[in-house]
Nucleic acid binder design. Structure first.
Lengths: 229, 229
DNA sequence: AATATACAAATTGGATACAAATACTCACCC
DNA sequence: GGGTGAGTATTTGTATCCAATTTGTATATT
């Protein structure tokens, strides 16, 4: 039996991973309470490692602690969506460029692996798997760029993006996913070829697609047009 | 006496602030051990709030925990300096542009306050105060932009920058600080005028100055030229 | 009836106690 | 004399315990 001997120190990581997955899935909705006692019961550990995991989530911006009260899943505030899209666009461009300049064989392998998962998820119409593999694909591009400042910011953006898109994933029922699969393939090709200018332009184009998506699907919810640019 | 009744919840913040200041000053050198027991004695609190503060420092990238061993101040690795400068340059430009577009009166007030401190520190040749007020000045510009994704990244960059420059602050004995004072004033003027294109260009120019500084003062230490761009 | 106040219950923040893993010491062996 | 190993000591990781703050409820007062 390869029953992991529950190694010391692995507790907070397990709890963190589980909660993070639930938050990104929107299994835990924005605003949902994260009760320390409940969680310690659920994971069979004391409150100490639970608190450590919660503090990491807070550092990621995925949770927020209300002083002397409980911790909650961070809300998605729509007024910051334009800021979000601005930063996302910039990071698509920058990471695309850097990846073209610095990609190594193992980076391309990671990108292809994530892209294969993405294509499979699209074929299966599995929205959650789509969002997750899409996130991993773009994260692989950022990692290929090798700049941890960009990688860390981009991960935060992609995390928030998973939650935003999960709200509106109905849009993925349309023809767009196939379009994204093709675009991803094109990005891999350009990055492999090392064409930095084209990779940056592609990143901008890809971002524009997503901006358009969100405009179409969020604006109606808000009841008014989102002021973008 | 306005003796703050030591309010519950303020412990970790105090410890975090004190340690962060020491790390940015380089009073705590990179690689220095952060012993939980020592710190709890020093601050007169138990290990619990100390650990919380350390975890926040780790999340900031200022400290690193070695599993089952102690936490240390994160090392400054010179091989990532080019990445650092790349991201810093981009953030100078982006935050300059955004600040010009979205500045409010209170933002300009904060910028001017930090700039006054910076000028005073330059006049007094106080290197630490220079670095700190310089950091606060640029952070005020980022805050004026209002995009928390950029603000958070920029704060990390400015933190790392304080440590890097502290290593080589002899360069500030030269004529350059006065140059920086003038440039900062020019940035305030352009941001107040709302000229986004010029503000972005200024940011890039300012970054170029710093890149040049670091090249001149770090390259000799490394024994070879740093490959930049 | 509505509001304010006092009381009670629940939950977080912090302290202490305990267990596991690592580092250090010193002796012993080659 | 140097290296290896057992045993000890120190330090982190986890559990439990206590206190302080807040929320909700019930009662009393206007």
């Amino acid at each position: 039996m390869t029953n992991d001997p529950p190694r010391r120190g692995g507790g907070p990581q397990k709890i963190y991973d589980a909660l993070k997955a639930d938050i990104l899935n929107m299994s835990l909705a924005p605003g949902a309470a994260l009760d320390e006692t409940d969680l310690s019961a659920r994971f069979g550990m004391s409150r100490t490692p639970v608190r450590e995991a919660l503090q990491k989530l807070v550092a990621d911006g995925l949770a927020t602690t209300l002083p002397n009260r409980n911790t909650v899943v961070t809300a998605l505030d729509f007024e910051s969506v334009p800021h979000y899209l601005d930063a996302l666009t910039l990071m698509y461009r920058v990471t695309g460029r850097l990846a073209a300049l610095r990609r190594k064989p193992e980076d391309l392998a990671r990108m292809r692996a994530a892209q294969a998962e993405f294509a499979a998820a699209v074929a299966a119409s599995d929205a959650i798997a789509m969002l997750e593999s899409n996130r991993n694909f773009h994260l692989a591009i950022a990692q290929a760029g090798g700049n941890r400042y960009y990688t860390d910011l981009f991960e935060r953006l992609l995390n928030d993006g998973m939650r935003l898109l999960r709200l509106y994933y109905r849009s993925y029922q349309d023809s767009l996913p196939q379009e994204f699969v093709r675009e991803h393939d094109a990005m891999i090709a350009v990055i492999e070829a090392g064409d930095a200018d084209t990779a940056e332009r592609q990143g901008g184009d890809h971002a524009r697609q997503i901006v358009g998506q969100l405009q179409r699907f969020i604006a109606p919810v808000l009841g008014a047009a989102v002021p973008l640019e």
